[in-house]
Design a protein around this nucleic acid. Sequence first.
DNA 1: GCGACAG
DNA 2: ATCTTGTCGC
Length: 231
Amino acid sequence: MINPNLTEQEAIDIQQQLRGQVIATDHLPAEIKLIAGVDVEYDKDSNAIAGAFVLLDYHTLEVVEVATHCMEVTFPYIPGLFSFREMPVLLEAWQKLQQHPDIIICDGQGRAHPRRFGLACHMGVLLDKPTLGCGKTRLFGKYDPPAAERGAVSPLLAEDDGEHIGNALRTQKDINPVFVSVGHKISLDTATSLVLKMCTEYRLPETTRKADHYGREAFLAYKNGTIPPLQ
DNA sequence: GCGACAG
DNA sequence: ATCTTGTCGC
């Protein structure tokens, strides 16, 4: 689905071509039962990476299923072309799932992107699933810091045309905000309240935290099983 | 020309 | 992403 040998310009052309398929309004199932988190781990001194998909029960936040995949990175890190680096592993992990979620929370931006097509949009369009982006830091857009209270929101506005491309959301009192934006088949308002709802105890959504946990665990097992033990 | 730049 | 434990401050 993603050719690893793309040039930078070819990747940009693909973004321009797919951006028109993004739906920025709510097209969610009548009842949300499963919500997914994704994350990718990087090895310190090799090009090995691990991608993880974790499915949580929407109401209890209990882990329902985990799928991971390890491989070599095929695309460099280029701000704005992040999805071409992380999508391959995540697609592999996705195919290992026995069931699919109703919505996916991505670790990165969606529409809050210079070409309005961040990782969350790319994943949403390729999988035809509702997705949203929840990044720890800003990639694109200007904003004023939201108020200190949990739930405070401040609009993220595009530098170029002023479009409201996302929200800086304070998920815990006095803790740095996260950046929420539409991925696919969801509205910004729904995405924002959903992220807040998933941040029960920490700054980041439980989906992202669980994906990080299981991804790291799988990565360690992969490295320990592949590389002969030292000493 | 100089910074900024998801993970 | 990764390097990284204790430590300073409320």
